[in-house]
Amino acid sequence: MSNTKIAPANSDLAHKIAMYRSQFALRQFENRAYDLFLENFVKGTSHLAIGQEAIAAGVAAAMRPDDWTFATYRGHAHTLARGVPMAPVFAELMGRTNGLMAGKGGSMHLTSVEHGMMGSYAVIGAHLPIACGAAWSAQYRGTEQVAVAFFGDGSTNIGSFHEALNFAAVWKLPVIFFCENNLWMEYTRTSDVTAVANPAADRASAYGLESIIVDGNDADAVFDVTSAAFARARAGEGPSMIEAKTYRHGGHSRADPGKYRPDDELAEWMAKDPIPRYRARLLDAGVSEEEILALESEVDAEVDLATEEAKAGDVPGEDLLLKDVWADGGASWRN
């Protein structure tokens, strides 16, 4: 099952169809995740990427299978976009043994090393220097792998963002810093607490980097700008930072209805919803309505199947509790 993963390709029709399928699958996954909260299958918190799917799909399409993704707690879409099947992700949200991490990490820490998904990091900014470390490893070993660190607008005001940017620039590391600027931190508008208008792009020059802004609701634009950054990184030209303008359709997390956002702002961004936008692009390119509907119902069936598969998983028991603190598989701290 790798329906959400699309292979790097030229912007031919097959590529466009795959790009739409990926975004639509991410959307339907998140919609189902939300339903599962309401049905109390998912406990704890979760941060949906509804509205931001073009970024996950566009960047993943530009990656090599052995490149590395470092995401934030809003990481479902980035995980799926690397080709991780839906069922273990649903199961992880539900805390089941068939979860991606057997229920030990939860929504905010999705990781699948075999897919190059090197973790979702829930403390703001932490993973930017960690992505630098992976990039350093690639540089040291000469593998031409590239690390991508996704982060939100709010992350640009924390120290590790600035430490990582400087560090990556000085060491010329093959890392891409990708800011998903959805305008809001949690309940506060980022521009109210930030010294510059474009929180990432306006800081780029401080680290000798080009200021790059892209429409984050346009998967093709994201793919193009990111592909160029990958090429620079693989050529040994060092890091890039990209700021994508986007919007989350819902609140910050499960607990937040997002009522603080003005109606007209929400309406403006709903009109720029990446999914119908890309769907229209497919129709313009000559894909028939029937073909699109068939693709959509395939995805819906996949979501249904994955949901049932996840629900069928066992509740974890004591055998997992004391497992894998250490590399020897155990948790012992004394003899």
């Binding site: 991490m101 057997a102 030990k104 990490g105 820490h109 990781t111 699948s112 090393v113 090197m118 973790g119 997992l320 497992k323 894998d324 603190v325 250490w326 590399a327 598989g329």
Partner: peptide, 8 residues
């Protein structure tokens, strides 16, 4: 390591 069920 613990959170990822030993993946890293």
């Amino acid at each position: 390591r613990y959170m990822t069920n030993g993946q890293v």
